[in-house]
């Protein structure tokens, strides 16, 4: 039992760290595997970029980009497309793979996405992501990565993409499961902290503050190394203490860049 209010706060922090660690452990490897699969399949299909869209909620029809590779990957992940809009919306509802091409369209034709990313979509291959009896999302490949840049995706490439879609769909499903677990943990923590304004404020500031997020990443690294054994814990401590000691002695900010 916690003896004081500060002990209780510490326990809450520890449980928060555990949840955030679990969140990363659960979802990150799946997302990494998905991105890697997008990269290898895009190379096989001579595509410049690839992306995965999933429904924001089951049967909602609204889609969001979960993972992407290519030039505008960073700008595309997180983008949302409302139900039934655009080519992705049609593929989701119809379950029909499609190839669309307009190599001479300078501005690109995927208005819903190109407007935000600045990318110019000239060729598109979209296949449904199926898991069991449901269409859970859409897998897309855009443009060619080599000459001839204007060559539309072929029916044989549609079949290859459909085969990759099965693997991607399994990963998407695993990711959805992991997110669900994380959501449950977060909700439990929220209920726990319902009457604790201090913890909630801290939680909020941590989520908003990038320095805290970096500190957490460091903590995760230390935690991972520490789990290897006592010698590793000692090594971590020595290393960190040396860096801090040096920093204090010079009284200047370390410039390690």
């Amino acid at each position: 039992m916690p003896e004081s209010r500060s002990d209780e706060f510490l326990l809450r922090l520890q449980s928060l760290f555990r949840i955030m660690d679990a969140e990363r452990l659960l979802t990150d490897p799946i997302k990494d595997a998905m991105t890697e699969l997008l990269r290898t399949s895009a190379a096989r299909l001579r595509a410049e970029g690839a992306s995965v869209l999933v429904q924001t909620a089951a049967d909602s029809g609204d889609l969001k980009f979960l993972a992407a590779t290519g030039e505008v990957a960073d700008r595309i992940v997180g983008l949302e497309i409302p139900a039934g809009k655009g080519i992705a919306g049609f593929v989701l509802m119809s379950g029909q793979p499609l190839v669309v091409s307009e190599p001479d369209d300078e501005s690109g034709f995927y208005a819903e996405v190109d407007k935000t990313t600045g990318f110019s979509t000239k060729l598109l291959l979209a296949v449904p992501l199926r898991f069991r009896d449901d269409v859970i999302g859409v897998l897309e490949y855009v443009n060619r990565n080599s000459e001839p840049f204007s060559e539309p995706f072929t029916p044989a490439e549609m079949d290859i993409a459909a085969a990759y879609a099965d693997a991607v769909a399994a990963l998407v499903n695993a990711h959805l499961g992991a997110e669900l677990m994380c959501g449950l943990s977060k909700r439990m923590l929220k209920e726990d902290a319902e009457d604790d304004a201090e913890v909630r404020a801290w939680l909020h500031s941590m989520r908003e503050n990038s320095a805290h997020v970096r500190a957490l990443e460091l903590a995760a690294l230390v935690s991972e190394l520490s789990s290897k054994g006592d010698a590793e814990v000692e090594l971590c401590r020595t290393l960190l203490e040396s860096v801090i000691g040096y920093s204090r002695s010079t009284s200047v900010k370390l410039d390690l860049a």
Partner: peptide, 9 residues
């Protein structure tokens, strides 16, 4: 039949 809310159905 596309674009109504809940169009996944």
């Amino acid at each position: 039949v596309l674009g109504a809310s809940g169009s996944g159905d």
